[in-house]
């Protein structure tokens, strides 16, 4: 058996075992830090083995196997779950106003504008500033451009989430501060 097969097989087995250990651990009445750690370490070891065997491809394949193991366990849980009458969660999302409360449509539109075009613009400026920084640090052009292309959606997602967690003043600061700092870097920094 080739070293590749051994390493991938070990990685897949470790990741699947890690999921099983977590299943055991989380089923206990009391939390077991030791068992949790073993589970996560096995998953980490599996992913590392996948990485050593075949880089990002190996990681992707091991991750699919771990998710597949969890899916089997979930399927078992679904099939064996007894009919229940538990009380469902009544947590309100507070998405819409209650009866008689004003709709605050203007505020909602403003929030949307901040979270969608506003956050995108801010993320784009930070991504471009990162590209400028990469250029200044003598990174290869491909790395700098790829960094900017990957940063744009990642930062936008994080900004959009954080924005909705903050009050208006915090929202404006969250967008304005990185955008202003990035604009300054782009204005003063290297142009190529």
């Amino acid at each position: 058996m080739a070293a590749f097969d051994v390493m991938m097989g070990t990685g897949a087995a470790a990741a699947a075992a890690g999921v099983l250990v977590l299943r055991l651990s989380w089923a206990r009445a009391r939390r077991s830090a030791g068992l949790n750690a073993v589970g996560w370490l096995l998953i980490l070891a599996g992913i590392s083995a996948g990485m050593v065997a075949a880089g990002a491809w190996g990681v992707a394949v091991v991750a699919i196997i771990a998710m597949g193991t969890a899916a089997v366990l979930l399927g078992h849980a679904a099939l064996t779950s007894p009919p229940g009458r538990s009380r469902p969660s009544e947590r309100r999302a507070h998405m819409l106003p209650g009866k008689g409360e004003p709709l605050h449509l203007g505020q909602r539109v403003l929030t949307f504008l901040l979270a969608v075009p506003g956050a995108m613009l801010s993320a784009l400026l930070v991504a471009l500033a990162a590209r400028a920084g990469a250029g200044a640090a003598d990174w290869h052009e491909a790395n700098g451009n790829a960094l900017a292309l990957f940063l744009l959606p990642t930062l936008w997602g994080v900004f959009a989430f954080l924005l909705l967690m903050l009050r208006r003043r915090g929202q404006l600061l969250l967008l304005a501060l990185p955008a202003a700092a990035s604009a300054a870097i782009l204005w003063l920094g290297p142009q190529a």
Binding site: L22, R23, W26, A27, A70, L73, L74, A77, A78, L79, S81, P82, P83, G84, R85, S86, R87, P88, S89
Partner: peptide, 12 residues
């Protein structure tokens, strides 16, 4: 993460 009360009605 492994708790799936698939046959529980009322939204659970």
């Amino acid at each position: 993460a492994f708790r799936l009360r698939a046959r529980d009605r009322n939204g659970i």
